[in-house]
Simulated scan of single mutants.
Amino acid sequence: MRHREGCAGKDDSLQPPWHDPSMDLPAPLAWLVDEAGTSPSPERFLADLGGHLLAAGLPLAGGALTLAAPHPIITQHTWLWRAETGAVVEALGFAGTALGQAGRDWLGELGPACEETIGTAPGNSLLAWAGTRPFSSSETDSLRQVTRFAAAPLAGLAARATLSTLLEAYLGRRSAARVQAGALSRSTGETIRAALLCADLRDFTALSEATEPTVIIAALDAWFDRVAGAVHAFGGEVLKFIGDGVLAIFPVTGTPTEACEAALRAVTAIRAGMAHLDATRANQGLPPLPFGAALHFGDMLWGNIGAADRLDFTAIGPAVNLVSRLEGLCKPLGRNILVSGSVAAETTMPLLSLGDYELRGIAEPCAVFTLAEN
């Protein structure tokens, strides 16, 4: 075990119930062997382990558990447990951050701390503890044993956390949760109500043919950053990127008005973000990135569609078709944001009516609006 300054202390032995006479192992180690592998989450694992160590007489002020994360932005998750309250909070680590740094910083404010790194695929994890006083040599030996016995259940937790992180990165949070919950059968799903956002870059094919691939990729990334950032900021979820297009949803979790107004705020933020991006590109001698975005509100089937052995978790239905057709109307109308009548009916935000329009493949004409200041 690597000790931080202040780990050394007097050599006092642990008192019961560190060793349960009815067991072959000390009680915390028996828990790690028999029950920890079924912990539903890293935060629950840390809280339960900390509770067992406290009950065994260890003078803990808090603990930290860090797991590496295979994510494009977040490189690690750290869970921080406070012995006094039993509460657990999560901290995120990003590229360039040392493994467990958030835990070290937090525990350093609680008291003398000790830590040990554990090898868990796909990376390392770290368990660290702060004491109400310096740990004795027998206490640090006990914590070392705890870390060794924690390696197996933590490997399982790390594998599940890795799967969750990867699914969220590729599917989005809500869809990933559904897949992890066992929604793996083709042609299964649920009907949900949501505001839908469909957005697309204009004339991007022509730009792609006349521009270096690396420059095109940078432009796409910048575009998707503005869209996804705005969608996530207002509680929505990106379902998929399709070429230079995006499909996102804002499911109804409260009222339809809340979902529609969240989508309207998101599309307003996208417009502001793209205006700033175009100004930056102009200063770099690059052309602007014109776009179109449409909003609609309705019911859709959200679930698995695809081949027997290759599925896509997505949304389909008339509402999805309509928002796609509506987005295609942006260029002919010379507008970069269009809003359907079903969204307009659910909001008090000022919108400008553009009239009713026939949409290809849609039986009824669609009342079309745009942002009042668009």
Rank of each mutant, 00 (worst) to 15 (best):
L65D: 01
T66S: 14
T66D: 03
L67E: 03
A69I: 12
A69G: 03
A69R: 08
H71R: 07
P72K: 01
P72R: 02
P72C: 06
I73D: 14
I73A: 15
I74G: 04
I74V: 15
T75R: 01
T75Y: 06
T75S: 11
T75L: 09
T75C: 11
Q76W: 05
Q76V: 00
Q76L: 06
H77Q: 11
T78D: 06
T78H: 03
W79A: 01
L80D: 01
L80F: 05
W81Y: 13
W81K: 06
W81T: 06
R82H: 12
R82L: 14
R82A: 15
R82N: 13
A83S: 15
A83I: 09
A83H: 07
A83C: 13
A83T: 15
E84P: 01
E84W: 06
T85F: 09
T85Y: 09
T85H: 07
T85G: 09
G86H: 12
G86F: 11
A87T: 03
A87N: 09
A87Y: 05
A87L: 09
A87Q: 14
A87I: 01
V88W: 03
V88E: 02
V88P: 10
V88L: 04
V89E: 15
V89P: 04
V89I: 07
V89T: 15
E90Y: 04
E90K: 15
A91H: 12
A91Q: 15
L92S: 02
L92E: 00
G93L: 06
G93M: 06
F94L: 14
F94Q: 13
F94W: 09
G96N: 07
G96E: 01
G96F: 11
G96I: 10
